[in-house]
Write a protein that binds this DNA or RNA. Structure first.
Length: 925
DNA sequence: TAATTCACG
DNA sequence: ACGTACGTGAATTAC
């Protein structure tokens, strides 16, 4: 390549969008509140190319503002595309300035898109003897590929680039000539560009057809070989397909001059460049142009950010300038003989703390088998102990480490330790002593960011660990078990994980301290982790027979409804498809002229919309019923029995402690926090959640109105405080205030409206939202809200204060210090800002409630353990705890639970807990 | 894979 | 003019 002329042509907007969205979860914002995600990401990719590919020539093509020749021939072209985000619009001038400073030419031709310009220039360059690379993630460019013109395409996920020459394009699209890509696009269409294509033909269909018939022309020569709907569509939409062909064709006749000299890569203009990088606060980028490094001691990602939260320095798929295992001196030992076991165990036993990580055969801790375990207590030094297959042999080896794992004096560090603890539990190892989970620590200290180890390693350590996919392959086809991984590779991977996790602990520990989160972490979250492990291991028993019987009843009703609906409609259609339901309702039956549409232009057919249509047509009720029953059947009645663990006969959910931004837990596999209760049919499912045997009862305990009580506490609103302290019916009391009537005269409707308003208050009320929910006019809703604030003025003050705090600090906090970052609080976009403002109101409330129940759980479990009770805590549903109670212990447990929950903390209002018992969850409620 | 819908607190 | 109450997870359809 060195003696050849190589030209790189970059599709600016495609790369800018990509960069912008790559950072969307943790945008880069400089101290002037400019979102620099797009600028940073784009510049990084550009530098990467310059460095790695060392091109002799390079240019960047931009789409000009205003219409192009495609709009002239087809008005809807790109019409429904969402407006360019404001942040990108602001970024573009900076990018152009940067390019100017780098002496890189910008290509922009009125009336033509960037791809046309690239196509034209590529063709001319090829003739002039260049090797041309078109850098873009847009697959449409594949049509331009030729002998010396290739695509340089960032991979969709993960790092790296794909270079697509003729053979790759032939393979990827199943065609012989690159220009057949246009034929494929003409059939397939492109939703993003509003290119219609042919109805009923998607990516797969288009590829199949073109690989067989070669071109659009070829199709119509043999049109009789097609059958049915497809033939019909091909004929009916012939014109549309031909138009699509024209739209999808990249023009190579753009009026532009090709001047080789102008495109030559040359030295940047440092006088322009450095001040610009300074302004953008891209300090880490300056050394790449020969400027002195900023502060080498600082973690690479921690500079110049609005809220002291880290940002991603590098973006998956755009660059990969992280250090890896090959760049760092390390010593990873394989521990696989008696002497080595003994000396490792001995060394561990004298440590104050160490990090460990288990490797297993799967992701489900309850059924996975141990394959290995790694330990580290010193940076870059780590030990891997393979565990042999077979229960007895495995037990024999892991037993050598039982003592150190159960040693109360040693702090155990790990990433997602709940998993490791659950796995070890099956080998009769009960991890004891203080623990430090890096995932949970990160979620507390730097909330709102991904807490995966890979993300943290890259962000805080500038280091990219070996990916598990590299060892066992991507999930799906032929994924290996970790046991099948070659031992040397397994060692490198596992030992590295323990090593990295230890380093992350050292990074996170001071962060917790600085944020004043140590108490919450050590006194609540870490003990809770052990409680959750216990709950998950215990599981909950499911009455599968009960569910199967229910399934039969549901299916009968569904079949009947289905028959009725199709008959009423007088046409076959899939009732489960919102799209088809919309078409039947609004086009076929025309039951409402002004149908609502969703973002993507479909008819909206959600419950809210349908409910409003109820009186208009008998089919609506039936569709709603059908939907409800189908949902019940597929999401719960049929799904739950499949998740019963064959070894334990129980359901073991996984609680995620580092997922929810407000501090709540979430539950997956299955989600046991959304089991139906509101409707009669759905409630039936709770009957299948039963006690372990007839000697146990189901105890359910839930906080009454915690969030409203917290609003009372946080706002110190005198009326709210008084109502709770007097044990009043809070919704009725609210109604009495708002409607200015005595408590006795509050009607059911007034109470209902007040109740909805109370919920609204917690969520950061809006007149629109309240109006929607109460089905009243917006002005009426506004009066209601005004009335509320008039009567509870301190609530209004609290709400304003919360927003003020968020604006000031960039985050809000719970009573116990848990933070939520709100980077959008100063957004110029009112919708986005409004959302952040409501978050500012809601997060302290929801988050404090989460903190409280977590503290209660820790206390209750401690009591259960200390008194050696047999009853078990089995479920948490945000404000509710459920127990499988030994009948002999019932009184004791009730006392422990009630006290544990009500005395979890001291507030200006009492916490109140309702309890119920029964033989299943339904009865206990 | 995204969009839609709907289950819970 | 636009798009709206807070926080989740799962199943499904259709691209």
């Amino acid at each position: 390549m060195s003696d050849k002329k190589t030209l790189f042509l970059l599709d600016a907007y495609a790369l800018i969008y990509r960069a912008y969205y790559a950072f969307i979860r943790a945008p880069r914002i400089n101290s002037k509140k400019l979102n620099t995600s797009a600028i940073y990401g784009f510049t990084n990719s550009l530098l990467e190319v310059l460095q790695k590919e060392n091109p002799t020539h390079l240019a960047v093509a931009f789409d000009p503002a205003g219409p192009t020749f495609r709009h002239e021939m087809y008005e809807p072209y790109k019409a429904q595309r969402e407006a360019t985000p404001e942040d990108i619009k602001l970024a573009v001038p900076y990018i152009k300035q940067l390019l100017d400073a780098l002496n890189i030419p910008v290509l922009e031709v009125m009336g033509y898109e960037a791809d046309d310009v690239v196509g034209t220039v590529a063709l001319m360059a090829e003739k002039a003897g260049f090797e041309v690379y078109m850098m873009t993630p847009d697959k449409d460019y594949a049509q331009l590929v030729s002998d010396h013109v290739k695509m340089y395409k960032p991979r969709s996920k993960g790092g790296g680039m794909d270079i697509l020459g003729i053979p790759e394009v032939q393979e990827k699209f199943g065609i012989e000539e690159p220009d057949q890509v246009i034929d494929i696009l003409a059939l397939q269409g492109d939703a993003a560009d509003n290119i219609p294509g042919c109805p009923g033909i998607g990516e797969k269909g288009a590829k199949d057809i073109i690989s067989k018939y070669k071109s659009i022309k070829g199709i119509y020569e043999k049109i009789d070989e097609f059958k049915g709907k497809r033939k019909e569509n091909l004929i009916n939409f012939k014109e549309q397909i031909e138009l699509s062909y024209t739209l999808a064709t990249i023009s190579r006749k753009v009026p532009i001059e090709f001047n080789e000299e102008d495109l030559k890569v040359c030295e940047p203009d440092k006088d322009k460049l450095f001040p610009l990088l300074e302004e953008l606060e891209f300090k880490s980028m300056m050394p790449r142009f020969g400027a002195p490094a900023p502060t080498p001691a600082a973690a690479p990602a921690m500079q110049g950010d609005l809220f002291g939260q880290p940002q991603v320095t590098e973006t998956p798929g755009i660059t990969s300038t992280f250090k890896t295992i090959n760049d760092v001196d390390h010593t990873y030992y394989l521990v696989d003989n008696e002497q080595a076991y003994a000396s490792l165990a001995a060394e561990l036993s004298v440590q104050k703390e160490y990090c460990f990580d288990t490797e297993t055969t799967g992701l489900d801790a309850i059924s996975a088998e141990l394959v290995g375990i790694s330990f580290s207590w010193k940076e870059h030094e780590s030990y891997y102990v393979p565990i042999p297959e077979g229960k007895d042999k495995a037990q024999e080896i892991i037993n050598r480490f039982k003592l150190v794992l159960e040693d109360k004096k040693i702090l155990k560090i790990g990433q997602n330790l709940k998993y490791d603890i659950l796995v070890l539990k099956k080998y009769d190892i009960n991890v004891k002593g203080q623990i430090f989970d890096t995932m949970v620590a990160h979620h507390l200290a730097l909330p709102g960011l991904k807490s995966s180890m890979d993300f943290m390693a890259e962000t805080y350590l500038g280091y990219s660990p070996v990916k598990i996919e590299e060892l066992i392959g991507k999930k799906g086809k032929n994924q290996l078990s970790f046991r099948q991984v070659e031992i040397e590779k397994a060692k490198e991977y596992a030992a590295e994980d323990a090593d990295i996790t230890l380093q992350l602990k050292k990074f996170l520990e001071p962060k917790l301290k600085e944020s004043g989160l140590e108490d919450l972490f050590y006194q609540t979250e870490m003990p809770l982790l052990l409680v959750l492990a216990e709950m998950e291991a215990t599981g909950v028993k499911l009455d599968v027979d009960e569910l199967n019987a229910f399934a039969i009843k549901l299916k009968e009703r569904i079949v009947t409804l289905e028959k009725d609906i199709l008959e009423i409609a007088g046409k076959e259609f899939n009732i489960a498809s919102p799209k088809q339901v919309g078409e039947i309702l609004f086009e076929h039956l025309k039951i409402d002229a002004k149908a609502k549409k969703t973002k993507s232009g479909q008819y909206s057919t959600n419950e809210e919309t349908l409910n409003k249509l109820k009186g208009k047509h008998e089919i609506v009720d039936k569709i709603l019923d059908y939907r409800g029953l189908k949902k019940l059947l597929s999401t719960y009645v049929e799904a739950l029995p499949a998740l019963v663990n064959p070894q334990t006969g129980r359901i073991h959910t996984t609680y995620n402690q580092a997922m929810v931004v407000t501090g709540r837990l979430s539950s997956t596999n299955p989600n046991l926090q959304n089991i139906p209760i509101r409707d009669e049919d759905g409630r039936e499912i709770r009957k299948a959640f039963i006690t372990s045997d007839a000697e146990h009862v189901f105890l359910s305990a839930d906080y009454s109105q915690v969030e409203l009580r917290l609003m009372a506490h946080l706002s110190q609103d005198e009326h709210l405080l008084r109502a709770f302290n007097n044990g009043e019916d809070i919704h009725a009391a609210t109604a009495a205030k708002i409607y200015k009537v005595p408590l006795e005269e509050v009607s059911a409707d007034m109470r209902r409206k007040a109740k909805t308003a109370n919920f609204g208050i917690i969520y950061g009320i809006s007149a629109f939202g309240l109006a929607e929910r109460l089905n009243i006019s917006r002005s009426e809703a506004k009066e209601l809200i005004d009335g509320y604030f008039e009567n509870f003025p301190q609530v209004k003050e609290y709400m304003d204060k919360s927003i003020e705090i968020a604006r000031d600090k960039g985050y809000v906090q719970t009573v116990f210090g848990r933070k939520r970052n709100l980077p959008d609080i100063n957004s110029r976009n009112g919708v986005v800002r409004g959302m952040a403002e409501r978050n500012a109101i809601n997060a302290p409330i929801q988050g404090t409630a989460a903190d409280i129940i977590k503290m209660a759980m820790v206390t209750i479990q401690k009591e259960l353990d200390e008194q050696q009770l047999k009853s078990k805590m089995i479920l948490q549903v945000h404000d509710e705890l459920n127990f499988d109670v030994d009948k002999n212990e019932l009184d004791q447990i009730k006392e422990i639970v009630k006290k544990g929950m009500e005395n979890a903390c001291e507030l200006s209002v009492p916490l109140s807990v309702d309890m119920g018992i029964g033989s299943n969850w339904h009865e206990a409620h």
